[in-house]
Structures are given as C-alpha cells and as structure tokens.
C-alpha cells in the first residue's frame, strides 16, 4: 500500500531533514551552498539530457538559456519586491515576495523557454553539427546582448536579489532558498520523467532514432522539437533563476561556453538519455568540483583528465542509456515516481 509512495516519502523526509538542518544552522553555509548548487546542476544536466540524450541533438549552448532565466527572474524579483537604484521603489509590497517568489522563478523559466525558440525554429531544417553551431551562436548572442544592456549593469552584472530573500525571511524565518531549490529540482526530474514516459513524449525518442519514420508514422516532429527545446531551455532558465538568487549576483560572464561545457560533461558523464544517470552525474560532478577546490587552477586540469580517463574505460558514461530501475529491477516496485 505504502510501497508505491516510497519515493515520495523519501523525498519529503529528505527535504524536511535538509530544511531542518539549515534552519537550526547545523550544517554550515558552505555545505548548504554546495547542496544548492547540486540542485541547480541536477536541473541543468537533466534538462540538457532531454535534448542531447533523448532527442539526440547536440546542444552546446545550454548556459545561454540559464542566463536568460537568471536575468529575468532577478530583474523581476528586484523590480517587484525591493528598492533598487535602477528601478526605484518596489512595485509590490515586499511582504508579498514570500508568495510570489516561485512565480518569479517560473517567469524566468518561461522567458528562457521562449529564448529556446532561437534554437527550436532552426531545428526544423537543421540537424546535428549545424544545429550545434546554432546553439553556440545562441549562447554567445544571449550573453553578448546582456553585456551590451548597460541599463541592467552590462558586463558588470546585476545584484540586489539578497534583499528579496531577506524580505521573505523577514515574514517567516525559514531557509527559503534551500526549500525552493529542493522543490524545483524534484519538480524538474518529475516533469521530465512524466514527459519522456508518455506516448506523446516518446515522440522525442522516435525523432532521435529515426526522424523520417517518426514524421511518416504520424509524429508531428516540428511540434515535438519545439516543445522539447522549449521545455529544456525553460528548465535551464529555472536553474538560472535559482542560481542567481543563491549567489545574489549575476553577470553574463558566468554563463559562457565553459558553463555550457559543464552541463554537457554532466550529461555525457551520466550516460546519454539516462535520467537517473544525469541526476547521479550532477551530484558526483558537484562533489568533485568541491573536493578539488584546494587544487585551484590545477582543478581544471585534473577534472578534464579524470573525465578523459573515465571515457576511455566507460565510453558510454556511468549509466549508458539505462535507468537505475533497469539495473536494479527490484526498484521498479517502488518506482511510482511519475
């Protein structure tokens, strides 16, 4: 009876424990921020996995959409709920921030989803490496546009998001960022799982495996591509929004190709097309980055080297294209996470 709710129960307990620990300040700010970046990375890698793994396209500009989400939700949050030297007094009562915060993040996601059209529309005619270029170009275009928007700080960046968080904490003192990162991370994985397991979403895999057959066997490939790109970039936008509020500061330079490369690495490390692989590799990657932090600049020599070595031994990533439930079939009994 309870068995099919096991995953839900585990998640609620986990979320509760983390929130409690954060509330009582039993874990330090550093560990907490690592945990939150883990969530952001999970959203990034699972959403990119939808395009690169499930649909078989090669998007290398995922950070661009993250950037759109980060800026839109930061600007919206600051505009609505805090006094700012650019936007002046808040448009709404800062007390309302506590209710509207998730909507602000989602608004960033929606904006990023529309930015995703920049890639989705050319994808009707273009595939493979040519589309890869378009994604790179999209990434540069987005960053470059923001760098040239001096109203919102240009390349110097934009800040003020901490005030929104403070406004929320003034009403009810809870570690809000931790809670929302957790909620959005779970929601992302859940949404992606629902999408890819529906007959509708299986059209994505059909496009990957044989696009011509898909179109002729009644799959509206252009529609599926549009929805998939928009979903993927929208989720990246949500990750961006959370990222911006965690740090309290955004600048376009932090969403460059290197950030996109990180997302790519997580997807391929996990195994293309494997959702649980993407989650696992995001966790591993975040931990690895933190463990190697003392190495400073050598970190970026060691990590790629590790990855290259790993790929020589396991050229299909950690999970291949399998899911956890394929490797441990007994998990299926608990697997009602749909």
């Amino acid at each position: 009876m309870f068995r099919k709710y096991t995953v839900q129960l585990i998640l609620v307990t986990l979320g509760g424990i983390i929130t409690y620990l954060a509330y009582e300040e039993l874990i330090g700010l550093y560990t907490l921020s690592v945990l939150m970046f883990m969530g952001v990375n999970i959203i990034m890698s699972t959403s990119l996995n939808l395009v690169n793994g499930n649909m078989g396209e090669f998007s290398c500009g995922h950070a661009g959409f993250m950037c759109v989400g980060a800026y839109v939700s930061s600007l919206l949050g600051v505009l609505l709920f805090s006094k700012d030297k650019i936007f002046g007094p808040p448009l709404l009562n800062p007390d309302l921030a506590i209710y509207f915060f998730p909507l602000v993040i989602i608004a960033g996601g929606i904006a990023a989803a529309f930015a995703g059209l920049l890639v989705a529309l050319p994808s009707y005619k273009t595939r493979g490496d040519y589309l890869a270029i378009i994604t790179i170009a999209a990434n540069y275009i987005i960053i470059s546009s923001i760098e040239n928007l001096n109203v919102i700080g240009g390349s110097r960046g934009f800040m003020g998001m901490k005030k929104v968080i403070n406004a929320m904490e003034d009403i009810i003192y809870l570690p809000w960022m931790v809670i929302w990162v957790f909620v959005f991370t779970v929601a992302t994985v859940w949404a992606l799982r629902r999408y890819t397991s529906s007959t509708f979403g299986k059209g994505v895999a059909a496009i990957c495996q044989d696009e011509v057959a898909a179109e002729i066997m009644s799959v509206n490939t252009n529609k599926i591509k549009t929805i998939t790109f928009m979903l993927s970039s929208g989720l990246a936008g949500i990750a961006g929004g959370l990222f911006a509020y965690i740090i309290g500061y955004v600048n376009p330079g932090s969403f460059n190709i290197l950030k996109s490369t990180e997302a790519l690495v997580m997807v391929y490390l996990g195994g293309m097309g494997s959702l649980s692989g993407a989650v696992l590799s995001a966790i591993l990657f975040t931990v690895l980055l933190e463990l190697l932090r003392p190495l400073q600049i050598i970190k970026w020599v060691v990590i790629p080297l590790l990855l290259i070595v790993l790929m020589q031994f396991r050229p299909e990533g950690i999970m291949g294209n399998r899911e956890l439930s394929d490797i441990f079939p007994r998990l299926k009994r608990f697997y009602k996470f749909k």
């Binding site: 090669f58 690495v265 970026w300 790629p304 080297l305």
Partner: peptide, 10 residues
Amino acid sequence: VITALMCGLI
C-alpha cells in the same frame, strides 16, 4: 567531441 572539449580545457 566531449573528449576534445576536455583536451582543450587541459
């Protein structure tokens, strides 16, 4: 391709 990206980083 990812390996190539990693080589570049290195």
